[in-house]
């Protein structure tokens, strides 16, 4: 009696957990925050070939600073594009997107070209940094940015140089209380991922447990 009551409670708790995971997942999906951590890790590994590594939040220049730095350091068109790509990527990763999917490189380049992005110069500068357009593809496929947003960022950084350079740099993010509440979605994603992993482990542990018990019994069984 007590055992069946306990089972019933456990089952109810499990269904509540599943419900929370589904509803939370749906909400994160609608916010464009649902991403595969393995894919984003692979993307990070792919991006890590650059000399300076990743841009941390304190190092990531504000939009005004970004363009100002690209303006001062870029002497040629190619180097200007290099700056644009290198600063656009963290910004692109940061941006929230509304759609995810598995896009091919051809589709991505075609869509970027249609949006007015100079693919050849972007590709050349990324190649010079030991990276490729595959990195951009990973960013788009991870669902954290749409092609339109990426294109507008790649274009916007070059077209708004004069106006943005005139703007004062944003406040330094090394201040102690610099909490960005708009990033709360990412925190929610971490919590959701843990709950989703719990559901997966609970589901998987049943057949695995059964299999392990079978192996144990087979080992203990007397050989005739």
């Amino acid at each position: 009696m007590a055992r069946s009551e306990k089972n019933k409670r456990n089952r109810r708790a499990f269904f509540i957990l599943v419900l929370v995971v589904i509803v939370g997942g749906g909400w994160l999906w609608s916010q464009g925050e649902l991403r595969n951590p393995l894919q984003s890790t692979a993307m990070l590994i792919g991006q890590s070939s650059g000399e300076a590594g990743f841009a941390m939040v304190g190092e990531r220049p504000a939009p005004g600073e970004m363009v100002a730095s690209s303006e001062t350091t870029a002497n040629t068109d190619a180097s200007s594009a290099a700056e644009t790509v290198s600063v656009a990527e963290p910004a692109a990763v940061e941006a929230a997107a509304s759609s995810t999917g598995t896009m091919t490189l051809e589709t991505l380049t075609a869509e970027l070209a249609a949006a007015g992005v100079d693919i050849e110069s972007v590709s050349a500068t990324m190649a010079a940094e030991g990276r490729s357009l595959e990195n951009l593809l990973s960013v788009v496929n991870s669902g954290r940015v749409t092609v339109a947003e990426l294109a507008s960022r790649l274009n916007g950084e070059t077209t708004s140089e004069t106006t943005a350079a005139a703007q004062p740099p944003a406040a330094s993010s090394t201040a102690l209380l610099d909490i960005r509440w708009e990033e709360l979605d990412s925190v929610a994603y971490n919590l959701w991922f843990m709950l989703a992993a719990t559901v997966v482990v609970i589901v998987v542990s049943r057949p695995v447990g059964w299999l392990v018990n079978r192996i144990k019994r087979a080992q203990l069984a007397p050989t005739v």
């Binding site: 939040v57 940061e94 993010s173 209380l177 909490i179 843990m194």
Partner: peptide, 18 residues
């Protein structure tokens, strides 16, 4: 757990607090 979930997002906390 709570600290870890928040700590992972340095964009959320800002560098100093992170």
């Amino acid at each position: 757990t709570a600290t870890f979930i928040v700590e992972l997002e340095e964009h959320f906390l800002g560098l100093a607090l992170h």
